[in-house]
Write a protein that binds this DNA or RNA. Structure first.
Lengths: 208, 208
DNA sequence: GTCTATACGATGATAGAC
DNA sequence: GTCTATCATCGTATAGAC
């Protein structure tokens, strides 16, 4: 049994019972993030959770259902982060700053989970995929809303609002692909850098 | 045999002989981009190329070698695009503009190839992976060089040069994940939008 | 709920005819 | 160089004991 790399803070599986299901979810995240869904065997997941392969099927109907659970919880968390920023007090610029800071930081701090959330969608079954897509649409709308508010208020100089919203999300999401805890940047530092870069994106250029 | 979706312009496999190997490379790109490397069977690849599974092994030693060939050619092309911009005449701002425009446009226009190039690295064997990593380092250095030139010349206002270079590459790379030919943006339009956004990133903010 | 044992289909790769 | 046939292995998932 391999020891899973543990990310900081409270587990995403705090509400899950029984404990064995929690261990399987955690092991699934680790394995899927490392090798990808299709390259991960149920033997590997069960082994990391300290169980036999058969035990997995007591808690999840299939391997795909395990992925779906991970994806669902992860997407809900991601939406919560953006919703928190979108619904907070402050100017559009402050809300956008907070959205980008928190969203990119989450993708860095939880890069293992985020990698599965963002890059294993295609492995979901049709119905599960459809359910996840609605969550993703929410995230997109919430962020676009902040930018629309800023443009309407005259705070942002943005020509292509949907394109800019897409670029901002894309920038944050891709953190999950390349971020490593061994790198030279902490998640906090990355959040600040990215919030600054996005702040510039929505602002008419001044002088160098 | 399924008909492969054909991307515009000359094939990336123009130099490859014999023609059957070309068909396999092309079929491999399609299949890997659609389902991912591990979910793709040699039967699927061979079927798309109009051959039996056994024929694949005449032209490639393993399925992994087929992926490596695709990845190698794709990365060389990607490096060529950035090198072309970095080595071109013009101010750092003009060179950065060209780099981002061409690089993001390539990821859009060739999103099928780019998806395999950018997202199937982990499926490569150790030695092949190491060879690809050197190409990726080149790409990173070339782009960072442009930004360094601009900062040195006083054209760019950038605090964190490696971080900004990383963000710019990341933004362009992630296009391969979400871009669809069915979407509302052409690759050309995307290139212009992204060049504008990055131009703002390296410029001290003015007023909205 | 967990284990051992195993069914059974699919997969990467090869053998040998043409 | 390509095909048909096939091998050895591995994968998901289940059966049945405890």
């Amino acid at each position: 049994m391999q020891q899973a790399h543990t990310e900081p803070g409270p587990s995403a599986w705090d509400g899950v019972e029984p404990e064995a299901a929690r261990r399987l979810l955690s092991a699934g995240v680790e394995a899927f993030a490392e090798r990808g869904y299709h390259a991960t065997t149920t033997r590997d997941i069960a082994g990391r959770a300290g169980m036999s392969p058969a035990a997995l099927y007591i808690h999840f109907k299939t391997k795909e259902e395990l992925l779906f659970r991970i994806s669902k919880v992860g997407h809900e968390r991601a939406r919560g982060i953006i919703a928190g920023a979108a619904g907070s007090d402050g100017t559009p610029r402050e809300r956008l700053d907070r959205a980008v800071r928190d969203f990119s930081r989450w993708h860095a701090e939880r890069h293992t989970t985020a990698r599965v959330v963002q890059y294993e969608l295609q492995a979901l079954g049709e119905e599960h995929y459809a359910e996840i897509v609605t969550l993703r649409r929410d995230i997109d709308s919430l962020l676009r809303g902040i930018i629309e508010d800023g443009v309407r208020a005259g705070d942002f100089a943005v020509d292509d609002i949907p394109g800019t919203a897409l670029a901002v999300l894309s920038l944050c999401v891709d953190v999950a692909r390349w971020f490593s805890a061994a790198g030279s940047r902490t998640p906090d530092e990355l959040g600040l850098l990215y919030a600054d870069l996005v702040g510039r994106m929505v602002t008419a250029p001044g002088r160098a």
